[in-house]
């Protein structure tokens, strides 16, 4: 669990740095560029953060079980309000979709019998979870690197 918390902090730091850069430079770009970049960063970051939250929350609780979707919706809303009306719909749609998908992947990784995946032993489940979480964090780093590179040129 400590490893997943460290990955969570890393991705939140990266996401906030991208958001601050976006906020500072958004008058330089046209609407199409802003819409595309909002779509890309909203989709991948809400997916990855919802996956981590679903893995970090204890199983079988009822109070917080919609939290990953709410986090995805919040990310989409924040990125959508950078420019006006059509982008906020785009952001909310992509953020909620990413949140639902990340929650589903997290639930399957915690309990592989949901999907008929033939993994039985406890150690296999844990190593499976850690390897996919590290892979998702690397993908998030790659995509935010591409987006930060696109602000420079």
């Amino acid at each position: 669990m400590l490893l997943i918390s460290v990955l969570f902090m890393w991705n939140v730091t990266e996401l906030s740095s991208v958001f601050r850069m976006f906020k500072k430079k958004h008058t330089l770009f046209d609407d199409r560029f802003t819409k595309t970049m909002c779509m890309a960063i909203t989709m991948i970051s809400s997916f990855v953060l919802a996956l981590y939250i679903q893995l970090l929350l204890p199983a079988n609780q009822t109070g917080l079980y919609l939290l990953p979707i709410v986090v995805g919706l919040f990310i989409g809303w924040k990125f959508g309000t950078i420019i006006k009306a059509p982008a906020i719909l785009n952001g909310i749609y992509n953020g909620t979709m990413g949140g639902i998908m990340g929650m589903m992947l997290g639930a399957v990784l915690q309990n592989p019998a949901l999907c008929n995946i033939p993994i039985e032993s406890e150690a296999m489940i844990v190593s499976n979870m850690y390897s996919l979480a590290i892979f998702a964090a690397c993908l998030h780093a790659l995509i935010s690197q591409f987006i930060r590179y696109s602000f420079r040129v």
């Binding site: 199409r32 595309t36 890309a40 989709m43 991948i44 998908m101 589903m104 992947l105 008929n116 591409f146």
Partner: peptide
Amino acid sequence: DYQTFVSGLTNGVIVGLMSPMIGTV
């Protein structure tokens, strides 16, 4: 151009993470 590159890459990543789950059920 560069924006089609970023959007195609992101969509491929999301669908690729999801599709083995569809195949198992």
